[in-house]
């Protein structure tokens, strides 16, 4: 009997998710033992036409990491959806847009201009990439950037979501174990649309630091707090820590070692807009009633977009990637 097929694909992402999968060490052998790897461009050679040749839903499990940044990403998303029984939005880029999603703060032309004109860019002819280029051998094309970054679920139907930048290896291992158990008939799949490989609460739940009533007089960058109290809640020390709003599941890795949570596990269960939640939470614990002083305290957060939407911008309420007028949906 042939083994069920496994695929992993990357689109607009950094590759860290692939590393995280490899980082499960010998557990990867279980993947190999239980699955036939049909398509995994990072790990083995295969062509898109090989995938196209498969039956619909012939791939049992596809881990998709990366945002939908260009037309090719979107095309592949539709293809992988069609060929996969279970499509998992794997990691922050696929689930929330992550760092590529911050591109939604600017028009694409501006992004390209910036990328091709920075001081460290060697571009004497001031060229820009063209989607269609004529060369002696004929016409070559590259995929066009979409006008904004979408999450995978904004483009195709997704079965499960696995947050994290990247997802923690122990969570990946646990999910793989679960899928294998399901294959062996020992467990059942969670309901469609569920978040897997993560907790239901927030990072604070797993954080070992002491938490008290909060009254913040000033926000400071972590390098400006010396020394950071190793026992006390980082937010209470004035460092904007995103732990209170970020889904649990990482074992509070960053706060445990003295760095503030930056929110890579995304919003907690049921939260629609991560940044909005965090903004109201931070605003709520500012210890001042004087509007000018409050303004000053808030100015202590130097990069609000990066603080509140570093991972979630493409999936946020005001950049949800869905048309504003619902009935105009295509």
């Amino acid at each position: 009997m042939s083994k069920p097929k496994f695929a992993m694909y990357w689109s607009g992402s950094c590759g860290g998710c692939e590393i995280a999968v490899i980082n499960i060490h010998e557990k990867i052998l279980d993947v190999d033992a239980n699955f036939d790897i049909a398509f995994w461009p990072v790990a083995m050679d295969a062509k898109v036409k090989d995938v196209e040749a498969l039956e619909d839903e012939e791939i049992l499990l596809c881990l998709w990491n990366g945002s939908i940044r260009n037309e090719e990403n979107e095309h592949m998303a539709h293809l992988m959806r069609k060929k996969s029984k279970l499509l998992v939005s794997f990691g922050s880029c696929a689930t929330e847009g992550c760092i590529p999603g911050l591109g939604n703060l600017f028009p694409v032309a501006e992004l390209i201009d910036t990328a091709y004109t920075t001081l460290t860019t060697d571009n004497p002819d001031n060229i820009r990439p063209q989607t269609v280029t004529q060369v002696p051998e004929g016409e070559i094309t590259i995929p066009a950037m979409k006008d904004r970054v979408h999450t995978l679920a904004q483009v195709v139907d997704v079965d499960y979501f696995m947050p994290g930048c990247p997802p923690e290896s122990h969570q990946i291992a646990a999910v793989i174990d679960l899928v294998i158990e399901v294959l062996q008939g020992k467990a059942e799949l969670p309901p469609k649309g569920a978040v897997i490989g993560a907790g239901h609460s927030t990072v604070c739940e797993e954080c070992p630091r002491q938490r008290n009533l909060k009254a913040i007089k000033a926000f400071r960058r972590i390098q400006d707090v010396a020394p950071l109290d190793p026992e006390l809640c980082i937010l209470e020390q004035g460092v904007p820590c995103n732990g209170p709003a970020t889904r649990s599941g990482c074992k509070a890795r960053c706060p445990s070692v003295g760095a503030q949570c930056i929110g890579c596990y995304g919003p907690a269960e049921g939260v629609v807009d991560y940044g909005a939640r965090l903004i109201t939470a931070f605003a709520s614990v500012i210890d001042s009633k004087d509007p000018e002083e409050i303004e000053q305290i808030l100015d202590g957060i130097p990069d609000p977009a990066g603080q509140f939407y570093r991972f979630n911008l493409a999936d946020s309420l005001f950049q949800a990637g869905a048309p504003a007028f619902k009935k105009n949906e295509v």
Binding site: S201, T202, C204, E205, K214, L235, S248, E269, S284
Partner: peptide, 25 residues
Amino acid sequence: GQCSGCRICNSLCPFNAITFLEDRK
């Protein structure tokens, strides 16, 4: 089930209706 015990809400209630349960965090 979703409360992480971050305590952000604790000092906000104008009616002192919120308590933090130390044992269950």
